[in-house]
């Protein structure tokens, strides 16, 4: 499936789906699902499957209004981040207060960190997980990431500094 889809222009699939071809709609779903799973898993953690399903529902329902099919993944990313944050914040048991938890983040070089990204993520609020993902994995500027999540840029910069440094160590090891 993945091999077949990689040979197809995503824009062409979107246009076919917009014309009412439900098999093309199915192909668009297959194309974006792994990506949605990664975004929602990183931000919503245990609520990831529910957030991913909701994201895909919004994406599928709204696909007809996507004017620039080439911008598919950027459009999907914005929806996935918002839904993942919404689901994660709904499940407040999954994240303790960030002021306490940031202080407990492993220091750079801590051998525990490399093998336990999930544990580190659980110590951040969903919005911080989202900014971390957007900034350090997807290459967003802090301004764009903060705007997408409706957070002050200054707050994002100061609170993410330690977490980002820790994660960079993990990725570069």
């Amino acid at each position: 499936m993945a091999d077949q889809l990689e040979q197809v222009d995503p824009g062409e699939l979107v246009r076919a789906a917009q014309r009412g071809d439900t098999v093309a709609l199915c192909d668009v779903l297959d194309l974006v699902t792994p990506y949605v799973g990664r975004v929602c898993g990183a931000i919503a953690l245990d609520s990831g499957p529910d957030a991913a399903q909701e994201t895909l529902m919004v994406v599928m329902r709204s696909l007809g209004g996507l004017r620039e099919p080439a911008a598919l993944f950027g459009w999907v990313r914005a929806i996935a981040v918002r839904e993942a944050v919404r689901y994660a914040e709904r499940d407040r048991r999954a994240w303790p207060l960030e002021e306490h938890t940031l202080a407990r983040l492993p220091a750079p070089g801590d051998p525990e960190l490399i093998s336990d990204v999930h544990d580190v993520l659980t110590r951040l609020t969903p919005r911080l997980r989202a900014v971390l993902l957007l900034r350090d994995v997807h290459g967003y500027s802090e301004e764009d990431a903060a705007a997408l999540l409706d957070l002050p840029v200054g707050t994002v910069k100061s609170r993410l500094h330690r977490a980002r440094e820790s994660f960079r160590k993990a990725w570069q090891s």
């Binding site: 990664r38 929602c40 898993g41 953690l45 990831g48 499957p49 990204v117 999930h118 994995v137 993990a170």
Partner: peptide, 13 residues
């Protein structure tokens, strides 16, 4: 789409 670094959780659909 962007590949995610190893160890980041992924949601299965």
């Amino acid at each position: 789409d962007t590949e995610q670094p190893q160890g980041w959780p992924t949601a299965e659909v």
